[in-house]
Design a protein around this nucleic acid. Structure first.
Lengths: 155, 155
DNA sequence: TATTGTTATACTCTATAACTATA
DNA sequence: TATAGTTATAGAGTATAACAATA
């Protein structure tokens, strides 16, 4: 019951047919994510910034005293991974950890003065990059795209 | 010149302020990507499907005889990684590789009958999943979101 | 018993450089 | 010289299970 293959036209570079895959949300998301990371590192690697790291430090900047688990939940980073991130930040002197009196299982996190300076020194570059990520789209389209992604995320 | 921290309100679960990060395209993309992967595996792990693997097999299904490098370029998968993926598919008997006469450096890839059957047995589940990925949005919003992502990708 | 954070382990994806064989 | 694919190696990021301390 196997069907004979049609003669194979030679394919190179970009004449490759994505078929239905080209309108799959998951597929275009994955491709777009690759693009997002590439432009991020092109623009910001000189500042020693990684997207995941900056998001953690930024949340500590905005929410001093946040608990480690709450931070992990919010950023959808798994706890074992968060432990490692936090350890590295502590070793670099960017954050301090303290055990709260009311629940001594937990860890409260705060930026040190050095940590706040680290964020302050980079937030302009980070958010300027952010503003230009969607320059291929009109202002209206860019707003719409972010709105729709936030709706998908139920943010 | 350091400014005293305000008293820290206790933060738990979801009252965590994302600040400007919450409208960063890169950030919401990364969060959405996590969600996309989670729902993918919830729905399709029973079929032994991984998104990257399926995309490779699907392109071979639609473009028999495609060159390995062209496939890597199209899917933005790095060549060393593609080599490994292809080796695994060959070991599983899903694809065959052949050296074209006109350029004996290359590798042309084709699904075997088993490989076509593998895709046939899974494409309905895959594309049905795809159709429901954006059920949180209206049909119009879903179309718009995919259109905007494709525009960002210059697809 | 359940929860917070930690440790250990492993797997995927990615990145780079060096290698081969062909062109 | 340049290109297609391979190998080797390393680093992120993630996943799971098992553990200690605390609730």
């Amino acid at each position: 019951m196997s069907i004979k293959q049609p003669p194979d036209p030679p394919k190179d570079g970009n004449e490759i047919d994505l078929g239905r895959l080209g309108t799959s949300f998951g597929f275009v998301m994955r491709m777009a994510q690759v693009e997002v990371f590439e432009t991020f590192f092109e623009n910001l690697s000189q500042y020693g910034l990684k997207p995941g790291e900056f998001s953690v430090l930024w949340l500590l900047y905005e929410n001093p005293g946040i608990r480690q688990g709450a931070l992990a939940n919010r950023l959808r980073i798994k706890r074992p991974h968060m432990t490692k991130l936090i350890q590295h930040f502590e070793e670099r002197g960017l954050i301090v950890r303290s055990v709260p009196d009311n629940d001594r299982r937990g860890m409260e996190l705060r930026l040190t003065a050095k940590g706040r300076r680290f964020v302050d020194d980079r937030q302009e570059a980070f958010f300027t990059h952010t503003e230009h990520e969607l320059d291929r789209l009109s202002d209206e389209e860019a707003k719409q795209l972010i709105r729709l992604l936030r709706k998908y995320l139920q943010l």
